[in-house]
Simulated scan of single mutants.
Amino acid sequence: MVALKAAEIDRYIANPPDSVNLILVYGPDTGLVNERAQALISKAAAENDDPFSQVKLDAADIAADPSRLIDEALTIPLFGGRRTIWVRENGTKSVLPAVETLLKNNDFSAFVVIEAGDLKKTAGLRKKFESSKTAIAIPCFADTIKDVDRLIDEETLSAGLQITKEARNSLHTLLGADRIASRGELKKLCLYAMKDNRIEVHHVEEIIGDASAFAMDELIDAAALGDTVTLDHGLERLSASGTDAGVIASQALRHFQMLHLCRLKANQRIPVEDVIGGMRPPIFWKRRAKIVRQVEVWNEDFLERALIRLNDTVKDARLNANLSFAIVSHTLLAIAQVAKASNRRR
């Protein structure tokens, strides 16, 4: 089967067919990957409260004993019901040999979910699932504006709050890189605005603007502007907070893709301020002056080089979890040095 289309995924997860017992959930949005894997496992395990029928395995466990996965899948629950197996593939150890055994011997009743990172089309694990007639691959990419709106609606409705259009537009510029991080920020925002019964722009600025914007936006702006002091400080704070380095790299890549698009439009003699003002989703008004400066600092050639470097960094961070923060930090510092040199020339 080919990977599910974006419009099909939520409907499929809400009601996965009993005929499918092997699913791969993968993509650059680690929070969304985890959320969807959890939802699938919870749905399958809802009718079975036997804790011994719910198994969690790490890639290292399976790499050390490739037959472990098929043994677990063939085990019949003592008290009946459906056995669930949740496998986390971290990029350092391959579960492909064990999965191949499952695909060849798919006559098992257990429900197996493989949670993986960002897999290219050529990745062996992804190719096996997408070419299989019995397994399903579910991609998880960064949230679109529509996805963020749905997430906002879910959390505000749950909290019994309304939200203004201006506050919603502000959230569009701050959320979307990682589903779990976005949901956490929204829960915090709803709790903060609870006493006012409605979320206004000032609530967003006071709660998400100070924490989340620094955590991502200020850090990336500092790199793009050559502000190494702010960048060093931001990296220290993010490292101490346990922020996923892969999320930082993915957000930086998206930011430089946006800068590249702006630079191309500016090359057509469109004023940079007009280019920035017309971006969708809209850029948070407090950041616009910084973005204008970044478009002026970076030329097309340097931006293309930065995009190649960031794309490689996203991949390397996923494949080397123990070194991911050092890898991302090194890339952002290198980008900041380029921006600083460009500033001096200007």
Rank of each mutant, 00 (worst) to 15 (best):
A326D: 12
I270R: 15
P139N: 02
R293H: 07
T173S: 15
A252S: 14
G209I: 04
S19M: 07
Y26T: 05
S53R: 10
G117F: 02
V20C: 07
S42A: 08
P17H: 06
D18V: 09
T75E: 09
G91P: 00
T92Q: 06
V297E: 09
A249E: 01
G234S: 03
A222E: 05
L225W: 13
I180C: 11
K340H: 15
D147F: 01
K5N: 15
R318E: 08
L103S: 01
G184R: 09
E155I: 04
K120M: 03
F52G: 00
C262Q: 11
L22V: 06
A73Q: 08
D118C: 08
L69F: 07
W285V: 00
R36N: 05
R126V: 03
K120G: 06
E100C: 13
D71W: 12
L264T: 13
F141Q: 14
I9L: 15
I276C: 05
A37M: 06
I70T: 03
V99N: 03
K56L: 11
N197M: 09
R309F: 14
T75V: 04
V87H: 00
E166F: 06
I138C: 15
G176C: 09
I85K: 03
A341C: 12
R293L: 05
T243H: 05
N343L: 14
D244H: 11
R254L: 15
D153I: 04
A240N: 07
L231E: 02
R288Q: 11
I70K: 00
L189H: 09
N311Y: 14
P16K: 00
Y192V: 02
D29P: 03
T101Q: 15
W86C: 11
